[in-house]
Design a protein around this nucleic acid. Structure first.
Lengths: 240, 240
DNA sequence: CTAGCACCTATAGCGCTGCTATATGAAGTG
DNA sequence: CACTTCATATAGCAGCGCTATAGGTGCTAG
C-alpha cells in the first residue's frame, strides 16, 4: 500500500511487519495488516516465511542484530563488570524503546520452548562474564552467572514494560542489576567479611583459571591431560 | 459435557476453564472448548464474565488464592529472610507445577497494563520484607526490595518454564534468589577473596590457584590426583 | 524462437477464533 | 394473571492463520 513499491515483496513484508510491530499499541498484529501494508497477498507471506512466526523470527533476528550492536559497541571498557552493567542497561533500554519487538523476542513464553534469541543473549553475557572470570572477579561459573543475570534482566524489563510509562522507575533496574552483579562477583563494596562462610579463594582462583584456559588455548598440556585437568578444575570450582 | 451437571453454569465454566488451562499442552485455550466442556453455550460465558479475559481473571484469582495459601502457610519461621526464601521457592514451584496458569497470571505481558495479581504478589512480599526491615535486616526500602525480588523471581520462573523439563536446573533459582536476598539484606556472609585487580591471565590464575590450594586443603581431589594436578598447574604457570 | 521449467504471486476459501443481536425460557412480584 | 428480571440458546458476524489451486514471469536448453 505504501512502502516502496520497488523493493522485493520479501523486504516489504519484513519492513511492514517491523513497522506494525513497533507502532501497534496493545493489540496484536495480524497477517492481513502486514500483507495489506506490504501490498501483497497472503500466499506471498507464506511462500517466503513459512508461517507468521517465521516472519516474526526474521523481524526479530534483524531487531536482534540491532540489539547485539548496542551490546557490543561500547563493550571494551577494560572493566568487565562495568561492561556487564552497560549490557544490562542496554538490554532494558532496548526493551523500553521497542516494547512490542521485545515482547516478541523475550516475552512470548511457552512451556518447553526456548527461543533462540534467549540463548544468543545468554551467550553474549557469558562471553563478557568470562572476561570477568579471567580477571578473578567472578564468584561462580560464568555460564551460571549469565543465566541468572539474564533471567533477572528479562524479569525487570518485562515488569517495567508492563507499568504505565509515568510510573516507570529505572531505579528498579539499577538496583536489581547491582544486586545481581555484586552477588556473583568478588567485589567487596561492603563491610568486609571473613572467608569462612562463603566461597574460598581456591574456588575463585579455579573459576578464573578455568575461564582463562578456555579463552586462550594453552599448549602446555596435551589434549588428554587438559581434559582431565579441566575435569578436576570443574570439581574444585563446583564445590560449595 | 461432563463436570457435575448439577452445579450452576458459572461454576462449571470456571472449572472447565481451570481444567483446560491446567492440561492444555502448548496451544491456546478457546472459548468453544471451555463452553463445550462446561456444557453451556457462548452467550452464557459472556453473560457471566463479560469476555474471555474476564473468565481468565476469575480463574486466576482462584488460582492466586491457592498461590497465596502456599505463600502464607509456612511463613512464620521467625527468620524473615528465611521466609522470603521460602516464598521465592514457593513462587517458582507454583509456576512449574501449573505453567499455563502461571503464564496467564505473570507471563501475559502487554505494555502499560499491569495485572492485579502482580501487585498482590508484590504486596505479599513487601509485607514479609517489612518484618525483615523491622528486625534491622534490610538494606533498602521494603517496597523497592519487593519489586526487585519479584521481578527477578518472575524472570527466573519464566526462564525455567521455557526450558525443556529435563534441562531445568533449580540451581538457577536458588542462586538468583540468594543473590537478590543477600544484596538487599545486611547479611555479611561472604567469602571475600580480595584480589589485586591486576590483569590476570592463565598464568596468574594458575599461580593464584596454586597458592590457594596449598593454603587451604581442598578435599575435592584425592592425594594422587592432587599431586598430578599441581604438577600440571606448575607446568602451566611456568610457561612464558 | 520456442518449449520447458523454476520461481513467485494472486484468487478464493476453509476452519477456526472471540464475540453478539435476538429470542426464548424460568423465576419471582404486584 | 400480568409484568419484570434474570439466565440460557439459536444463529451468525467479522476477523484470524493458513492453503489448494492456478496463473504469470523470467531463465535456460534445444
Amino acid at each position: 500500500m505504501s512502502s516502496d513499491d520497488q523493493l522485493p515483496p520479501k523486504v516489504r513484508l519484513l519492513r511492514a511487519a517491523a513497522e506494525l510491530l513497533a507502532n501497534s499499541e496493545g493489540s496484536a498484529v495480524s497477517t492481513r495488516q502486514i500483507t495489506k501494508l506490504a501490498g501483497v497477498t497472503a500466499p506471498t507471506l507464506y511462500h517466503h516465511f513459512g508461517d507468521k512466526e517465521g516472519l516474526f523470527d526474521a523481524v526479530v533476528s534483524a531487531g536482534f542484530e540491532e540489539y547485539v550492536a548496542g551490546e557490543r559497541d561500547f563493550a571494551p571498557s577494560g572493566e568487565p563488570l562495568e561492561d556487564i552493567r552497560r549490557m544490562w542497561d542496554n538490554h532494558v533500554a532496548f526493551g523500553l524503546a521497542q516494547p512490542h519487538l521485545y515482547l516478541v523476542m523475550f516475552g512470548n513464553i511457552r512451556p518447553e520452548s526456548r527461543p533462540a534469541v534467549v540463548a544468543d543473549a545468554e551467550a553474549l553475557l557469558e562471553e563478557m562474564l568470562n572476561k570477568a572470570a579471567i580477571a578473578g572477579q567472578l564468584n561462580v561459573q560464568p555460564r551460571e552467572a549469565a543465566r541468572s543475570i539474564l533471567a533477572a534482566n528479562v524479569g525487570v524489563t518485562l515488569m517495567l514494560i508492563s507499568e504505565p510509562v509515568e510510573d516507570r522507575n529505572l531505579e528498579l533496574s539499577t538496583m536489581t542489576r547491582d544486586s545481581m552483579i555484586f552477588a556473583v562477583s568478588t567485589e567487596t563494596a561492603r563491610g568486609a567479611a571473613a572467608e569462612d562462610s562463603g566461597k574460598s579463594s581456591v574456588v575463585v582462583a579455579a573459576i578464573a583459571l578455568n575461564a582463562a584456559l578456555q579463552a586462550s588455548h594453552s599448549d602446555q598440556l596435551s589434549s588428554s591431560e587438559l581434559k582431565l585437568f579441566l575435569e578436576w578444575l570443574h570439581r574444585i570450582s563446583s564445590s560449595s
